[in-house]
Amino acid sequence: MKAYIFPGQGAQFSGMGLDLYNNSPLAKELFDKANEILGFEITKIMFEGTAEELKQTKVTQPAIFLHSVILAKTLGEDFKPEMVAGHSLGELSALVANGVLTFEDGLTLVSKRALAMQKACEAQESTMAAVLALDDAIVEEVCASIDGVVVAANYNCPGQLVISGEIAAIDTACEILKEKGAKRALKLPVGGAFHSPLMEPAREELAAAIEATTFSNPICPVYQNVVAKAVTEPTEIKENLRAQLTAPVRWTQSIQQMIADGGTEFIEVGPGKVLQGLMRSIDRNVAASGAEFKS
């Protein structure tokens, strides 16, 4: 079975989407529509912006979403997903790709998500850290033993788990995890504690926007971050998406379940190759490649 996977924050680069804009009338139309919906020229930042400009959450999230979704739409007849999944932000790209959300509604939710997360980050200083080469259960145990907020946030692949929380709690966790044998426990250059209880204000804000949005029947199952299994019922998809901002991204478990359910070919749609790299660490016997636009 053919599975399409969509990247999250961190995959952005200057010049992303420019080839699509220049060579596909459909892509140009959608990018121009996105500028209208967002109320600023995101295309200018995507095509010409500095790394610093692209790093602003209000830009990064819509930019990655647009690159992913528009690339999927330009694949035309070649795009026939039998299962989809997206890493964090990428879940919204996946939901547009499999017909649950319209392009316009998906982009509006992504923009609201980015602004709500930015606000939550500014309200309380917090961060995330990558923990390498340590068993998930040990990381979870250490997080649970620390005073203050620190939780397992992204199960990226075996041996790579990202933790999220208050700065002091993260610092303490990193020291203990290194003592426990982690190869590395390294703070990430992010603005806040994504996928932790500290995102609760953003979750509440986004939940209202999700509730007001129409969710349609999908053309194929989506493997959602929160539950790491196939979901096809719109009300359940909506519920899981509402929970996503404060719940961990169970990416390893999602991919393993997709393989168990018959996924044999995984195609990453969007900027970069992050998910292809994670695929090799999860199961290197499964084919993983990137979607390519053919003008």
Rank of each mutant, 00 (worst) to 15 (best):
L115T: 05
A123Q: 15
A152P: 11
A137Y: 04
G99M: 05
R113I: 03
L95G: 03
S93T: 05
E141H: 15
V131M: 10
E140D: 15
A152R: 05
E141L: 10
L89S: 00
V110S: 04
A153S: 06
Y155P: 11
K119I: 00
V100Q: 01
D136C: 08
E125N: 11
K112C: 02
A114V: 14
V110L: 06
A133N: 15
E140V: 14
G148F: 12
A97E: 04
I138V: 15
Q124K: 12
D105I: 05
N156T: 02
A152Q: 13
A94L: 07
A153V: 01
S126I: 10
D136T: 15
N98P: 06
E104W: 04
A152H: 05
Q124V: 12
S145G: 14
E125W: 01
V150E: 03
L132Y: 08
V131L: 05
A94C: 10
D147Y: 06
C143L: 13
A114K: 08
V139M: 05
Y155V: 14
D147G: 13
V150C: 12
K112Y: 14
A130E: 07
L115G: 00
S145H: 12
N156P: 04
Y155H: 14
L109A: 03
M128P: 02
A97P: 09
R113K: 11
L95E: 10
L109V: 01
G99L: 02
A114R: 11
G106V: 09
A120F: 04
A123C: 10
G148K: 12
T108A: 15
